[in-house]
Design a protein around this nucleic acid. Structure first.
Lengths: 249, 249
DNA sequence: CAGTGGTCTAGACCACGTC
DNA sequence: ACGTGGTCTAGACCACTGG
């Protein structure tokens, strides 16, 4: 006679979803840190008292969702943003021939501002919340191509300084993760065509009124918590914004 | 003593990949048609002489890739394009408040042309190949918002006529599938900001020189075969181009 | 009710990475 | 050699759908 019946557990949710929840919890509370290896699948079986198949289903899912990375023969690791594969997951600007390169970033402005109604709504902030606001100029192939205006909730990034941004060696999302424990797992972008204003025209070296791509990005962490609002202005003479779609389940 | 050892089969590929290949083959050769149910998982076990777990892995994959759709209690179906979920998989224009609506389409031009070098390269065509070329105007909320220029290889769509396009009741990709056996499973899009030329300005009701979004799309069928080249021009005053990204495995 | 997909078990052997 | 994830088996029971 078996002890626990299969199907649904007492909590009402499938076992593998319970396991997923517990694994994410262990990542969030710091038991397993980004870049570190988590226990082997066999040990997870014992820890959660489920079978291999259930562990595999949970880890498969989390791997597909970007929280974990499997390496055959080595182990399963908590995802970090300092892997090559992340460089272009959220950076969608490529040269017209498809060539991808990493931009040279220059910090142009840095300040603390009060959240306007739009930012408040997009970032789910309370009235009166304050934001860090900074502007980056990105060069590709020695030419300015993108101007980013980035807004971060002060609450999540309280120790952020201009110097931190200027002296960072890694990508911005790597900094969010390693410096502030904020892991970006998903972004939503809206793209529009606009005319260059004086500031953007000057920074990108084009005429006022020339067409620019405006990308409005919200970056989400675990549980769909919005953590960054970004306005990007892209010069698309020689570079393009790139987006793929798959018929998915 | 077991008969077949687990791990790799004689062909060198994992069993579940062999099963995936055979299922896709049965879809391609018409044994199972779009919208129809395929045999139950138990029957597939017998047919391919593998266990449930292997069948599930194969069907899971194909479901995730958009070839199959599972319905608990009913069966597994070959994907079609006449499901709601497809309407906005490849149509990325939404109102600024996030509202999605289906566009009213009007055919503006229809002709047969010789493929230019760009189209030849993008669609992997031989020199001298011919294309159907047509222009659609799309209205959203009673205002023109998108102008599409669409190029299709004559070879794949030989029976296409202006009347077919004008009288279609379904989406374009539904027509490709039901009328020509061409199933779009993936698209690649490049987005740029351009100035409206005379034709586009007139169709969209804006001034020449106003900024427009230009979307260059290649649509792929099975095995990454390119089947459509499309240039979209989008007016982004009240509508936006929408694109999501996930950190994926 | 019977049949479907959804979840789960308790193992097995294989291929890969490290030592 | 050893431990990891990758693949696979031969079932089981559960939840849903339809007649």
């Amino acid at each position: 006679m078996v002890e626990r019946l299969v199907g649904l557990n007492p909590s009402g949710a499938p076992l593998y979803k319970e396991v997923k929840r517990k694994i994410i919890e262990s990542i969030r509370n710091g038991e397993w840190k980004p870049g570190e290896v988590i226990p082997s699948e066999k040990k997870l079986c014992e820890r959660f008292a489920v079978s291999m198949g259930t562990i595999r289903k949970a880890v498969d899912d989390l791997s597909g969702e970007g929280f974990l990375i499997r390496h055959q023969g080595r182990g399963t690791f908590v995802a970090t943003h300092n892997q090559d594969r992340y460089l272009f997951t959220f950076f969608h600007v490529v040269r017209q021939d498809g060539h991808k390169e990493y931009p040279k970033v220059e910090l142009m402005e840095f300040s603390k501002v009060k959240a306007d109604p739009v930012a408040m709504s997009m970032l789910h902030l309370d009235p009166g919340s304050r934001l860090f606001r900074f502007v980056n100029k990105l060069e590709l192939g020695r030419n300015p191509v993108v101007v980013d205006e980035i807004l971060l909730p002060e609450q999540l990034f309280s120790r952020l300084t201009e110097r931190t941004l200027r002296e960072r060696s890694a990508t911005l999302y790597q900094l969010y993760q390693e410096g502030f424990g904020v892991t970006v797992v998903r972004t939503q972008e809206r793209v529009r065509a606009v005319s260059a204003d004086a500031l953007r025209a000057r920074l990108l070296g084009v005429k006022v009124g020339d067409p620019l791509l405006q990308v409005i990005r919200i970056a989400f962490s675990f549980k769909d918590q919005p953590v960054e609002l970004r306005y990007s202005y892209v010069l698309t003479h020689t570079y393009e914004y790139c987006s793929d779609s798959m018929a998915a389940s």
